[in-house]
Simulated scan of single mutants.
Amino acid sequence: MGLISEKFIQSLQKNKIGVFIMLFAALCTAFGQMFWKLSDGAINVLLMVGFLLYFMGAALMVIAFRFGSLSVLHPLLSIGYVFAVFLGAFFLQEAITMENIIGTVLIVMGTALIGGGDH
């Protein structure tokens, strides 16, 4: 177990700038999608803000790949789903169900397992 955690820490240290940028990109895209939902399908300011945030997230993803390994950074895109669960609960008063919790835990575990071992 020590070897796995040691590899994980080394991978994070090697890719830390890319990881930080990718997490921020995932947060931007999750906020962008939330604003799309808030726009209620109408062409309005909320929709435009959503597009801007989503574009920022996409641009940040491209930038992040310059600062880390693809095999570590790409799985972090799935963290956007985790952000979406919490944004939905906090801003849209959506219920967090047991299925949401289990899915969120599985996403985080999978992301750590796939992206944590940079070779």
Score class of each variant (00 low, 15 high):
M1S: 12
M1F: 14
G2Y: 03
G2H: 08
S5K: 12
S5Y: 15
S5F: 11
E6Q: 06
E6C: 12
E6I: 07
F8I: 01
F8W: 11
I9L: 14
I9W: 13
Q10M: 10
S11Y: 06
L12N: 15
L12S: 04
L12R: 06
L12D: 14
Q13D: 15
Q13S: 08
Q13H: 12
Q13C: 09
K14G: 04
N15R: 04
K16T: 14
I17A: 15
I17C: 08
G18Y: 04
V19Q: 02
F20C: 13
I21C: 03
I21F: 11
I21K: 02
M22I: 06
F24K: 08
A25D: 00
A26D: 10
A26T: 11
A26E: 03
A26K: 00
L27Y: 04
C28D: 01
C28L: 07
F31R: 03
G32K: 00
M34H: 10
M34Y: 09
F35P: 05
F35M: 07
W36I: 11
S39Q: 06
D40F: 14
G41N: 12
A42Y: 08
V45A: 03
L46P: 08
M48Y: 15
M48E: 14
V49T: 07
V49C: 04
V49H: 04
G50D: 04
G50L: 06
F51P: 10
F51S: 14
F51T: 11
F51Q: 02
Y54Q: 05
Y54A: 10
F55T: 01
M56C: 07
G57E: 01
A59Q: 03
A59G: 05
L60R: 01
M61E: 00
V62W: 13
V62P: 02
V62D: 03
F65R: 04
F65D: 02
R66K: 15
R66I: 09
R66D: 10
G68Y: 01
G68D: 01
S69D: 15
L70R: 14
S71F: 07
V72E: 00
V72G: 10
L73C: 07
H74Y: 14
P75S: 05
P75N: 05
P75A: 06
L76Q: 01
L76D: 02
L76V: 12
L76N: 04
L77S: 11
S78C: 11
S78L: 05
S78A: 11
G80N: 05
G80D: 10
Y81E: 07
Y81G: 14
V82S: 04
F83L: 07
F83I: 09
A84F: 02
A84W: 09
V85N: 00
F86V: 03
F86Q: 05
L87E: 09
L87W: 12
G88R: 09
G88I: 01
A89F: 15
A89Y: 14
F90N: 08
F90C: 03
L92W: 13
Q93I: 13
Q93E: 15
E94C: 08
E94W: 08
I96N: 00
I96V: 09
I96F: 01
M98N: 15
E99A: 14
N100S: 06
I102H: 02
G103Q: 00
G103L: 01
T104P: 10
M109T: 13
M109E: 08
M109L: 15
G110N: 01
G110C: 02
G110I: 09
A112Q: 01
I114P: 08
G115H: 02
G115C: 07
G117P: 09
H119P: 13
H119S: 10
